[in-house]
Design a binder for these strands. Structure first.
Lengths: 341, 341
DNA sequence: ACCCATTGCTAAACTGATTTAGCGCGAGCA
DNA sequence: TGCTCGCGCTAAATCAGTTTAGCAATGGGT
């Protein structure tokens, strides 16, 4: 595009100086002894010609492209991807960088292809993102330059940014204890594979620990724990329905995510029970759906935008190593009340 | 990244040939008179060294970067952005291209910045995407090269891809008529600004026309039309509640989108009415929430993935001008039944 | 008068590819 | 023997920048 852009040579010619002079002035090089007048002339010429440097030409020499690769496993599946990207985009813009994106779809061939494509374009660094917080191993090709893992960790001490799920678990419990819930708190969404296989999920384990620890510190435990195959509304629905049929009704339910909570709302409605008067509900993620439920769902949100930001900050500024955790904060709506006396 | 990549010169040296020869062989140039043996040697050398061309260097000469800019107004706000991007990403990968993404957030300064950044990197073309289907005017800087509008149209005859909302409207009506609904069909989500200002939305007007025309052809009209300020669940909830209070109950409701439909479900549940036995519901978009509702919501889906694909296909292959419409297809779930006799 | 340092600037090399122009050699022909 | 032609290949220019090495002019000191 744009075949007729002014080049540095054009600017130099118009300013009556050499390319060298023009380059130095425009790059604001210190220690150069060009006169104030020369500076003026170069700036004026650049301005008049609407000069913009050709990044490809520059990077050929400097090996800097001001371009970051954002490689993720799956972007489309989850709505959260957008936020991760948005945060990264914001931070990149502030630093005059740009994002090259690719998706591996969990396919090794695609991944290789994507990484090659990025490396061929001499990106300055790579953000390797996972859509579900988990542990993964980064492809060796990436180890040749700066990498930061986003929403993932790895065993090789690379810098990475992950949400503080354990603290989030404690926060959920605290919100319930505050309102007087204590003995009759149920948990929905336990899931062995997610809890035990860090390559699938890191969130489930961390949330669970946070919840259990906080409860233990308050001298109590969960009154009921429901296992779910997936964290989708239908599973929350079934789990809640079962709980209502089989046990004494809990005063509060913690759901492992908002989609489960949606299912819980449906089961509660079916049973003619009101949130939060009969049962309080808290959950995690701050999915848009949390705001749409009636009553609004209180949830501890995943800070995707911040995480995206943080990742590019670490990549560009930092010699950071190891994990950076980003706090998850409670989005208070109306799903938590006090237990009926 | 990767400082020690083999260059073309390395390959040539190892093959005992000139850079020229190596370049021609690797690019599979026709009409060159290099011997079969020379070909062998070059391929072998490239293979052994793991040679990959430096895209920046190449593009400096050829002015092709195999890179497409994807500039959108807002990516994060709506979950649909992910699908648009995903489709574009797929098609780009198939053609060995890569996507540079930027977001303007509707801010003119950001937009200028983003466009400059892309142009500085010599992208081969630009996809200019809007998150809500609408008409817009493309910044003049983009007119210097290939552009295609995605989910948007413009007055200057640029190629663009948009969903076929009018046909979607007809489809919704047909699904209802098929089941025997006729006289008592209500519409929820009319909205003057969306319907009348193409710079805000093209979808509302088109859907409405499709609905009205199809109904007229069947010799009937809507029994009720509810206006909504926004297309969010709460507005659908209020609208449906009002309808239930004030008028004879419709046998079916068409919602302008799935979020409104969610609100409608909530109002129906509150009134103790069942979907689809008491009231059938159809809507548009195929938001993930449609699958989560009980019963599953039948909806005419926005083909975002296809649209994203189509946009890069037009950009790279085509000398297409004017609009390309992509069909919206009905996602059948369980929210449409026959009216009670 | 000579030497040296400083000032203000530039020529040329360099980055890694593509592309144009053309060279040397052997065969065929007169 | 001399000329042309085709074959197989290469030198050098080019793209648009950055960077290194260094040149000419001036001024000051001895």
């Amino acid at each position: 595009m744009r075949h007729n852009r002014a080049t540095l040579a054009d600017v130099a010619r118009r300013a009556g100086l050499s390319k060298t002079a023009a380059s130095m002035v425009l790059n604001g090089r210190e220690g150069t002894r060009l006169s104030a007048e020369a500076h003026q002339r170069v700036f004026a010429a650049a301005e008049e010609l609407g000069y913009r440097p050709n990044v490809a030409a520059r990077s050929l020499r400097t090996r800097k492209t001001a371009t970051i690769a954002f490689v993720s496993d799956v972007v489309a599946t989850t709505r959260f991807a957008g936020d991760l990207i948005r945060g990264a985009l914001d931070a990149a813009r502030e630093r005059d960088h740009v994002l090259l994106i690719a998706e591996t779809q969990g396919d090794a061939a695609f991944e290789q292809h994507a990484i090659d494509a990025m490396l061929d374009r001499q990106v300055d660094g790579v953000i390797y993102a996972a859509m579900a917080t988990r542990r993964l191993t980064v492809p060796p090709a990436l180890r040749t330059g700066p990498v930061v893992l986003l929403n993932a960790t790895s065993s090789d001490g690379l810098p990475c940014v992950v949400p503080d799920n354990e603290r989030a678990g404690r926060t959920a419990v605290a919100a319930l204890l505050d309102r007087g819930h204590h003995d009759r708190i149920a948990l929905i969404g336990r899931n062995r594979p997610k809890e035990n296989d860090p390559e699938i999920s890191l969130a489930a384990h961390a949330r669970l620990r946070g919840i259990q620890d906080a409860l233990a510190e308050a001298g109590t435990t969960l009154c009921r724990e429901a296992f779910c195959h997936e964290w989708l509304p239908e599973h929350g629905f079934k789990a809640m329905r079962t709980i209502l049929r089989r046990s004494a009704r809990p005063t509060a339910v913690i759901c492992m995510n908002d989609r489960l909570a949606f299912g819980v709302y449906q089961a509660l409605a079916e049973a003619g029970l009101a949130v939060p008067d009969d049962v309080s509900v808290v959950s995690f993620d701050d999915d848009p759906i949390a705001a749409w439920l009636r009553p609004g769902l209180s949830t501890i949100g995943l800070p995707h935008v911040q995480m995206g930001r943080r990742a590019v900050e670490l990549l560009l500024d930092g010699k950071a190593t190891g994990p950076t955790t980003v706090p998850m904060t409670m989005r208070r709506r109306s799903s938590i009340g006090s237990p009926a006396a």
